[in-house]
Design a binder for these strands. Structure first.
Lengths: 152, 152
DNA sequence: AATTACCTTGACGTGCGCGTTAACGTTGCT
DNA sequence: AGCAACGTTAACGCGCACGTCAAGGTAATT
């Protein structure tokens, strides 16, 4: 069996389970261009690599955590492709200057994402504070007019 | 004109503008039970109070910031009603023990919301770190193999 | 060779969160 | 009294992000 450590490729069922998504969703993401078409086995079954899985998880984070639309996400994760190219160490030593330009673009996109995260976290902090204040009001009320209380 | 300081009631147009929502959306929220029906003027026009506006904003935050569905939000903001009752200083001095119980429930709900916020912010922080690492990789790559670069 | 489990591509259906249009009533101003 | 600006309900429409069949092919087990 070709499987040194921890199966390197997953077919869609396992992939979906691990990503906490449905098979339909994975196919849908592929169809929408969010995932580059995974390799297939002879019979046509999809095989997801570890990189694919990473990407799937990023998509889920961007969606669930930040609430972006798939269209938004599609634009955002183009920087991931650049990262994969970096990993390949430029075996295809094409125009280095052009590649550098790509990297710079990817850097920009990533910076923007960090900015979005910061902005959102800032707002969430503000919201957290008003909620905390609310708790205090509840507590003081309970102290003032409902001295001892049973836990029911 | 009955308007001591800053008009206390807004009709739907102004309300929508200030909340950065559409009139349709406000009516929809009301229809879905997220907003308690605002008072109306004789002709039937809706009049939104400051409390209404506060609530509308909370709904927007829960939706846009945290990405909850309207159904989720509906459950969550029941604690707001309790807060309004608190504000009314218990003019209707009904069963105090029962009210205290309501407050405790509202407190619980609010605590849960804070918990959700914290969890989400924690995840976002993790995501932020991986993005920051990515930036570093880009930078080191650029330093290594693309020494001097024009800004285009 | 058969069974079972897993996969494939369509294609239609669905719930949410509104947008839009239609037909009509109200308010405020002149 | 007339007009423009603003509001009302009701109903249909729509894009997104999938869910859910249907009809069939492939893989692994026995």
């Amino acid at each position: 069996m070709d499987d040194p450590q921890g199966h390197a490729y997953l077919q869609i069922g396992e992939a979906a389970d691990r990503a906490q998504l449905t098979q339909r969703t994975l196919r849908y993401y592929e169809e929408k261009g969010l995932l580059n078409p995974p390799t297939r086995m002879d019979g046509g079954f999809r095989l997801y690599s570890a990189d694919d899985m990473e990407r799937i998880d990023r998509i889920r984070q961007l969606k669930e955590l930040l609430g972006f639309s798939l269209a938004d996400i599609k634009e955002m994760i183009e920087s991931d492709d650049v990262r994969l190219q970096i990993r390949a160490e430029w075996r295809s030593d094409a125009d280095t200057a052009e590649k550098a330009e790509q990297i710079r673009r990817a850097r920009e996109v990533t910076l923007q994402q960090i900015g979005l995260l910061d902005a959102k976290m800032h707002k969430m902090n503000a919201m957290r504070e008003t909620l905390a204040e609310r708790i205090e009001k509840y507590d003081s009320w309970l102290l003032e007019r409902a001295p001892q209380n049973a836990k029911k």
